[in-house]
């Protein structure tokens, strides 16, 4: 494992911890899109089907369990916890996220590296992860006061994707036959979706102002 990959995984882990901190400690999910969180739960459930069949490393299994457990508990918190659900911006979080599922699934059926159940589900999870942030970005645009934790959460998610691209570049030059167009292109699309957010995040940081996205 190279440094970019490890840093990517750690920023991903940090993003989850920041979100759990906000939800569990402050008992608030204001500014957080349930739609995006549900998509992430589906992403991990369909990607980690191999968790009990293929052992890669203890690190790999543990991280998979963490991402599965955290994504489903976040969805549970926002839907079921009586205090947290009260802070949920339901009227603002209107992105029709179910409409992303079918196109991603059809694309996975058509474009994949191997036509097997596990492989198609894995590819589906890549396509879905690429667009899963969209409801969250739309919600951010509508939020007047983006709190620091929400801003940091989205920043860490974007950083994780950027670091994964550096990891792929590194692996491409250090490992023989390391060519994977499907995750690369969907990963690139996913990272580009954060470009706009990053711009305003750094602007607000530079000028020491509160983060606000233009509608």
């Amino acid at each position: 494992m190279n440094i970019f990959r490890l840093a990517g995984d750690m920023t991903h882990l940090a993003s989850v911890l920041v979100l759990l901190l906000k939800i569990h400690t402050i008992k608030s999910c204001a500014g957080i899109s349930l739609k995006t969180q549900e998509l992430f739960a589906i992403v991990f459930a369909s990607r980690y089907l191999d968790i009990f069949t293929d052992f890669i490393s203890l690190y790999n299994t543990l991280m998979k369990l963490i991402f599965l457990g955290s994504s489903f508990s976040i969805v549970w918190y926002i839907r079921r916890h009586k205090l947290v659900r009260r802070s949920y911006d339901k009227d603002q979080d209107t992105f029709r996220h179910y409409f992303l599922l079918l196109p991603c699934f059809i694309l996975a059926l058509l474009i994949n590296e191997k036509f097997t159940f596990k492989e198609v589900m894995w590819t589906f999870s890549l396509y879905l992860e690429a667009v899963a942030i969209l409801p969250q970005l739309v919600l951010l645009q509508r939020t007047k006061n983006i709190d620091n934790l929400t801003g940091q959460y989205v920043f860490l998610l974007g950083a994780y994707r950027g670091l994964y691209i550096l990891n792929w570049i590194y692996r491409y030059f250090t490992e023989p036959h390391y060519v994977h167009w499907i995750p690369w292109i969907s990963g690139l699309v996913q990272t580009l979706l954060y470009a706009d957010f990053f711009y305003y995040y750094f602007e607000s940081w530079k000028n020491n102002k509160k983060l606000q996205l233009p509608a």
Partner: peptide, 10 residues
């Protein structure tokens, strides 16, 4: 091996 090498990522 080539096909599976990406499955070590998360």
């Amino acid at each position: 091996v080539e096909q599976e090498s990406l499955k070590d990522e998360l």
